[in-house]
């Protein structure tokens, strides 16, 4: 296991989104999630760092940052959801997909992934009303035309506890 002593949120995220990674590196992604949970201001700092990476002009860096964001939403609980559910962060995602901001310079892959994530959170986190507001604004602007079909495991809905596998 990697030596975690002295690692900061920033250093974990730099490793998790390093453009020279050949594939997503889950050791670093989970290291970042764990560090968020350890720090008092973890979620606030993490969303700021993530927004910066998601706006990277390098597609692979941005895609990895979105994977990290998705992992944090699954592993860092309500404290993290609350930060993502603020316009301060949501606006940073909106900037990436909107042609009025960065949208024209960003790959379709990154934009599609952002829209899928936003939609999955509107389904899984109905109490985070600002996520819905942001998503519906993108629809009104025509940036989102139809709701994406998000696989069930991409949403945050926990699996039913007593799923009968062998009825």
């Amino acid at each position: 296991m990697a030596e975690a002593e002295g690692e900061s949120l920033e250093s974990w995220l730099n490793k998790a989104t390093n453009p020279s990674n050949r594939q997503e590196d889950w050791e670093y992604i989970i290291g970042f999630c764990d560090q968020i949970n350890k720090e008092l201001e973890g979620p606030q700092i993490a969303v700021r760092l993530l927004a910066h990476k998601i706006q990277s002009p390098q597609e692979w860096e941005a895609v990895q940052a979105l994977t990290v964001l998705e992992a944090c939403m699954k592993n860092c609980g309500r404290r993290f959801h609350n930060e993502v559910g603020k316009f301060r962060f949501l606006n940073e995602l909106i900037k990436v997909v909107s042609p009025k901001y960065l949208g024209d310079r960003v790959s379709e892959k990154v934009k599609t992934k952002i829209i899928e994530l936003l939609y999955s959170w509107t389904v899984a986190l109905p109490e985070e009303s600002k996520i819905k507001d942001a998503y519906h604004m993108l629809k009104r602007q025509g940036i989102v035309q139809t709701d994406p079909s998000v696989p069930a495991d991409r949403t945050l809905i926990p699996s039913p506890p007593a799923r009968p596998k062998n009825p």
Binding site: F87, L90, N91, I94, K95, S98, K100, Y101, K130, M137
Partner: peptide, 15 residues
Amino acid sequence: LGEESEERDDHLLPM
């Protein structure tokens, strides 16, 4: 109080 003022300052991006 801090949280309340943060809430007031949190606006959707103008489009």
